[in-house]
Simulated assay, not measured.
Amino acid sequence: MQRLWTPAWIVRHVAMVVLVVGFLGLGWWQVTRAAQGNALSFGYAIEWPVFAGFVVFVWWREVRHALRAAPGPSTAPPPSAAADPEPVTTTPAVRRPVRAVRVPAAPLDGADDGELAAYNRYLSWLNANPGSRPGDYPG
């Protein structure tokens, strides 16, 4: 439990308490406004306690995560070089992107249409000149 009393965790605990008290206070304020006849405040009177519950949920989840991820005493024997002669390779967390070469597709049957050919030339020009506007097309 000492892991949860570091300066960073104390700030988290205080922030959780301040947010929950603030959200519940805002919820109570909306209840009093709704009692005075403001119909919209009924929705907010429900919303603020939900926010407070979400803060408690996230705080509890982070506490559980910190307690589970804590290093404990290791019961496994130390690895020896003779027991495992092959090095263990790990998969990198970030992989290099795959580069795909773009090759224009072969024309289909009946693609000898003049308008289609002109449109394809226009698209090829736009692809070759990425910074230009369509109005700059010389054709």
Rank of each mutant, 00 (worst) to 15 (best):
G135F: 01
G72I: 10
H13T: 03
V56T: 06
A100V: 15
G37T: 10
A35V: 09
D136Q: 14
E115L: 06
P92H: 09
A128K: 03
P71Q: 08
L40C: 01
A69C: 12
H65G: 11
V56P: 01
I10M: 08
W9A: 02
A82P: 02
A81P: 02
R121M: 11
V20C: 05
Y44V: 00
R33G: 09
A34R: 01
R61S: 14
A93L: 12
W48D: 03
R68E: 14
A105M: 02
M16E: 09
D112P: 04
L19G: 12
L116I: 10
F51H: 13
N129D: 03
E86D: 14
G53N: 05
L40Y: 05
A69F: 02
G37C: 11
F23I: 00
A45H: 01
H13C: 03
A8Y: 04
V88G: 01
T89K: 05
T89A: 09
D84R: 13
F51P: 00
T6H: 06
A100P: 06
W5P: 00
P107E: 04
S124V: 11
G53Y: 01
V11N: 08
Q30P: 01
Y119D: 12
R133T: 15
H13P: 00
S74N: 13
L26N: 05
L126T: 06
E115V: 07
L116Y: 12
P49Y: 05
D112T: 04
P85E: 14
T89L: 09
A100G: 04
